[in-house]
């Protein structure tokens, strides 16, 4: 998987990820939202997960190892300094 380079605030250290959600496979179970340790995700009015705080993603991969529908993936991100 190619890493994506993206400008991020200098305060960010360590690994970061970009979250991609596949809307056609996601069933809106909310597991990713509930268990993301840093609050990157939230459910919208239709119970679909959305990325609300992308800068908080530590690329811990909880969400993409636990999504029962393989509908979310975290891509490694290289932070441009």
């Amino acid at each position: 998987m190619p890493a994506i380079t993206e400008a991020r605030p200098a305060a960010h250290k360590g690994p970061r990820g970009r979250v991609v959600i596949f809307g056609t496979w996601c069933k809106g179970c909310g597991l990713c939202v509930e268990f993301c340790p840093t609050g990157v995700l939230a459910l919208d009015q239709d119970s679909h997960p959305i990325v609300v705080a992308p800068e908080k993603c530590t690329a811990c991969h909880w969400c993409d190892t636990h999504c029962p529908d393989l509908a979310i993936v975290v891509q490694p991100l290289e932070v441009a300094r």
């Binding site: 069933k27 179970c29 909310g30 597991l31 029962p68």
Partner: peptide, 18 residues
Amino acid sequence: KFPNVWCSGCGIGIVMSA
């Protein structure tokens, strides 16, 4: 075959990805 047939949030899909 996707999306799969399992109920939203069912753990079986997690075993499949493991």
